[in-house]
Amino acid sequence: MGRPQAAIKMGEGNKEEAEKILGTGVTTLFFLSLTLSFVFFTFGQDFLQLFGASNETLPFAWDYLKIISLGAITIQFALGLNPYISTRVCLIQYDHHFDWSDVKHHFRPDSYFCI
């Protein structure tokens, strides 16, 4: 969503611009997840019937879809912000010289082999 641009700005040392890009990504994720939750709560039963839910299975599918829709915000943030986190870990590797004894409690060693 904005990971390459944020990585470029962080690499240039322009942290303010990288924060703006991250803020745009967070705002987009938030409104996208709210929109998806609203659409599924409003039109969820219609979607389920469109995809073939029978009258016997519709109540169970509707209950399941409501639970999934409530978790959409958390899922969107977990999946959507993960690239920004890995970008930051990779850039930290190249910004500073680390003492492994200081790092081993904060990051996994395999996170330092960024591609």
Rank of each mutant, 00 (worst) to 15 (best):
L70N: 07
F60T: 09
F38E: 00
I67P: 05
Q5R: 02
F113D: 12
V103Y: 06
L34N: 14
I115R: 03
G25M: 05
A72C: 01
F40W: 12
F60G: 05
E19M: 06
C114A: 02
S37F: 12
D99F: 07
W62A: 05
K9A: 15
F41M: 03
F40N: 02
E16R: 08
T57A: 15
F38D: 00
F43I: 07
S101E: 15
F77P: 00
M1D: 06
I73S: 00
L58A: 06
I68S: 06
A18G: 07
L58S: 06
L91I: 04
P83F: 01
L50T: 12
D63C: 05
G13T: 04
K9G: 11
F98C: 06
G25S: 12
S69Q: 07
F47T: 04
G11S: 08
A18P: 05
I67R: 11
G13D: 06
G44I: 08
F31P: 03
R108Y: 06
L48C: 08
P59D: 09
V103L: 12
F31V: 11
F31I: 10
H97M: 03
L29H: 09
F51D: 12
L65Y: 01
I85H: 07
F77T: 00
I8K: 09
P4R: 08
F38L: 11
S86W: 03
Q76M: 10
L50F: 15
K9Q: 12
Y84Q: 02
L50V: 09
G2Y: 00
F47I: 13
E19R: 05
T74K: 02
F40C: 08
S33P: 01
S33I: 04
N82F: 14
L32W: 03
Y64R: 08
S69E: 14
N55Y: 07
L91M: 05
V89F: 04
Y94D: 10
D110Q: 14
A72I: 02
G44L: 02
A61S: 15
Y84L: 13
K15L: 05
T42N: 10
F31E: 09
A72D: 00
W62V: 01
F43V: 03
F30A: 11
K20P: 02
A6T: 13
L34Q: 14
E16D: 15
P4G: 13
D63K: 13
D95I: 01
G23E: 05
E19Y: 06
Y64K: 08
S69V: 04
